[in-house]
Amino acid sequence: MPRRATQQLVGRRVTISRSSRTVATAIDNSLNAPPPPVPSDPNTPLSSDYPSTYASEAELDVDGEIDGEVDGQVDEHVAKAMGALTLVAGPAEATGEASAPPKPLSRLARRKQKPFPFLELPAELRVKIYEYFFDDTHYVLDLDPDNYRRIHKKLGFFRTCRTISLEAGYLFYSTHTFRIFPTHPGKHFKTKKPLLARMSSRQRSWITSLEMRLGPGWNKPPRGWVVNPALGLHECTSVRKLTVFVECDPSDGIFNGFRRADDFYEGFSRNLLTDVLNQMPSLDNVTFDAWSSVRKKGAMMRGLINTAVSHGKQIQWGPERGWTDEDNEEDIKVPTSDMVATALLNGVGMDVVIVA
């Protein structure tokens, strides 16, 4: 091929290569370029009616200029308007400079709320609040595995301050009845440390009502059912009511063949009640109650009534059994103090006084 023809062919190839690159560059620029502005039309809805899918004016401005910018300097009025859009106003408003970025909401200063002045309430209202606070606790309290969930966590309220400890503590212990010896089956029933022995001296001094249940362990009473100084009955100086609830009478014929010995549990119950009454000389009355199977003229009840009367206590009857002083169906007559004194002076046994 001649030399001149070869040069022309090479020139055409270079021209074609340059043209291809130019076309490729134009296509790439057209793909990356922003869409053309939409011409305004009277029949076309306002742009505010639909979300904008087009670039802003600042993005369309090729030279990087925006309204109000002259020679790279932002107009003062525009700078103030932009600063007013921020959450935190700064000195930029006065100088015309761009304001600082807003601080996160979590870092903003929060106003501290003042605690409610509970102790400034009248004492009557505070006591009413304490009553509502302990409203879901049982009236009679005993050693129970469920006590931790129902009661123990509430007692942490006493640690708030000394005033609340005294007020709420007195209300709690003076408005509940506490069982002297545990009756819940399991380890608590056989414990040597009853509920009273677990309390402090101040707590025991607030108690106004006690209950003693007789019947559980009728064939073999637990070793922990004894009255000793650790039980703290001598510190229960505010107790004015003792309830003796009899669950069963082992002297009944249905216990024949199962009893440990005749009159064993009846004697144990009388001795236990005697020890309790000796520790609380300020006690005014004893309330007797029982299940429906217990008879007032049975050996169990007769012995307990005699014990209470001999200590000069007034006899009252609980609501469960429904006994009254006018009961005639069982021919039981509760002896008065004069009858007891006369019987003891004449050497007559109390059983004779009861059935007379």
Rank of each mutant, 00 (worst) to 15 (best):
M1S: 12
M1R: 11
R4Y: 06
A5R: 07
A5Q: 06
T6Y: 14
Q8S: 08
G11E: 13
G11K: 13
R12I: 15
I16Y: 09
I16V: 15
S19R: 15
R21A: 06
A24Y: 05
I27W: 05
I27D: 09
N29T: 06
S30L: 12
L31T: 11
P34E: 02
P35N: 15
S40M: 11
S48T: 03
T53M: 05
A55E: 06
E59P: 00
L60R: 15
G64I: 07
G64N: 05
E65G: 11
I66V: 04
V70M: 01
V70A: 08
D71T: 10
V74A: 06
E76W: 08
H77K: 13
A79N: 11
K80E: 05
G83P: 01
L85K: 14
L85Y: 12
L85W: 13
L87S: 11
P91F: 15
E93K: 13
E93I: 12
S99L: 07
P102C: 00
L105H: 07
A109S: 11
R111A: 12
F116Q: 03
F116W: 02
P117G: 01
P117V: 00
E120G: 11
E120K: 10
L125W: 10
V127H: 09
F133K: 02
V140Y: 03
L143H: 01
L143T: 04
L143F: 04
L143Q: 03
L143R: 07
D144N: 05
D146Y: 11
N147E: 15
Y148F: 09
Y148E: 15
R149Y: 13
R149F: 14
R150M: 08
K154R: 05
L155E: 00
F158P: 00
R159T: 10
L171R: 06
L171Y: 10
L171K: 07
H176D: 09
F178W: 02
R179Q: 10
F181T: 07
P185S: 04
G186I: 09
G186C: 06
G186M: 08
A197D: 03
S200A: 11
S200V: 05
S200M: 06
S205T: 00
M212Q: 03
R213E: 05
N219R: 11
R223G: 13
R223C: 11
N228K: 14
A230E: 14
A230P: 08
L233V: 05
C236N: 01
S238Y: 02
T243G: 00
V244E: 00
V246S: 00
V246G: 00
D249E: 00
G253M: 14
F255H: 05
N256Y: 09
E266N: 03
F268A: 03
S269H: 02
N271V: 09
T274L: 10
Q279A: 14
M280F: 02
M280D: 02
D284N: 10
V286A: 03
T287D: 10
D289P: 05
W291Q: 12
S292P: 04
G298K: 02
A299N: 07
A299I: 15
L304V: 03
L304Q: 00
A308S: 04
A308I: 01
S310Y: 09
Q316N: 14
Q316K: 11
W317S: 00
G318E: 01
G322S: 07
E326G: 08
N328T: 15
D331N: 14
K333P: 13
P335W: 03
D338R: 07
V340Q: 03
A343R: 02
L344D: 13
L345T: 12
L345C: 10
N346S: 08
N346L: 10
I354H: 04
V355T: 15
